[in-house]
């Protein structure tokens, strides 16, 4: 069953005079339970794809179906529930004046789901945090703990699809592994579909079944984790990316 079906997908940002063609026609099909990665340099449009798919940006054209249901740039609440997003910066993605309990109950309340203390405690334990954290403010948590809360917040509305925008790049290395493992465990448990955007090839190779390489708004190559491990690529840019990341790891 297809979870994400994207065809002929374009994103254009218009300002008064100029038009920037950010994403220039991509096709993407992701099956349920699959984890697909998108890699590329900064500004290649990979985050834009995520933000459009999840409903944050409206200026796209093309055909998009999420969980078998076609969606338009303007979203209804039911469409929103299908996909949730985890952001890059755990220090900016939680409201500084909302306690953790509130941060988790708000999505459930907005979607009309149960949001009592037991539900919040369950959501916290699912991401490996004790229930007492519900009474804390985000500034009382570390970056890794905040990212766990952000994941719990995305999962509490029980989406079928999770869009991950560089979920570990703001964390230090030891915490990165914990967060990635947490994400993998939740995926197996709930048969979630992930679309992961990163510029870190090792993260993508560790997590994903298939990897798309994006450059200047188009997918230029499709790789498997084994390809990356072996340093194999079809497109020169993808080859360049792998080589650069190997050099970076060696350094």
């Amino acid at each position: 069953m297809t979870m994400i079906d994207v065809q002929d997908f374009h994103v254009r940002f218009r300002s008064r005079k100029t038009e920037t063609h950010v994403v220039r026609g991509i096709d993407l099909r992701v099956a349920r339970g699959e984890c697909v990665g998108i890699v590329g340099e900064s500004g290649c449009g990979k985050s834009t794809v995520l933000r459009c798919l999840v409903g944050l940006e409206g200026g796209w054209t093309g055909h998009v179906s999420l969980n078998g249901k076609p969606v338009r740039p303007e979203r209804q609440k039911e469409d929103l529930r299908a996909a949730q997003m985890v952001f890059q910066d755990p220090f900016g993605s939680l409201h500084p004046r909302h306690r953790i309990g509130r941060a988790l109950s708000e999505p459930a309340r907005c979607m009309g789901l149960p949001h009592g203390r037991e539900r919040i405690a369950a959501a916290l334990s699912e991401v490996g945090l004790p229930a007492e954290f519900a009474d804390r403010f985000p500034h009382e948590l570390s970056g890794g703990q905040r990212q766990r809360v952000a994941i719990a917040r995305a999962l509490i509305v029980e989406p079928a699809l999770l869009l991950l925008d560089e979920p570990t790049s703001a964390l230090d290395v030891s915490v990165q592994a914990e967060i990635l493992n947490l994400l993998s465990d939740r995926r197996e448990e709930r048969n979630l579909t992930y679309l992961l955007v990163s510029h870190d090839l090792s993260v993508v190779a560790h997590m994903c079944d298939r990897i798309f390489v994006m450059q200047h708004g188009v997918f230029v190559d499709e790789l498997s984790p084994e390809d990356i491990g072996a340093g194999r690529a079809n497109h020169p840019y993808a080859q360049h990316l792998i080589t650069a990341s190997l050099l970076g790891d060696a350094a």
Binding site: R51, V54, G55, L56, K77, L80, R81, A83, Q84, M85, F87, Q88, D89, G92, S93, L94, H95, P96, R97, E106, P107, C110, M111, A150, R153, A154, V157
Partner: peptide, 26 residues
């Protein structure tokens, strides 16, 4: 433009809710 407001839009918080409970307190 913060991520926590973006997150709230994704989980379907209404404009009024965003204004009064997310933006006003800041």
């Amino acid at each position: 433009n913060t991520d926590y407001v973006a997150a709230a839009r994704i989980y379907g918080a209404s404009h009024l809710r965003l204004l009064l409970l997310y933006i006003a307190p800041m």
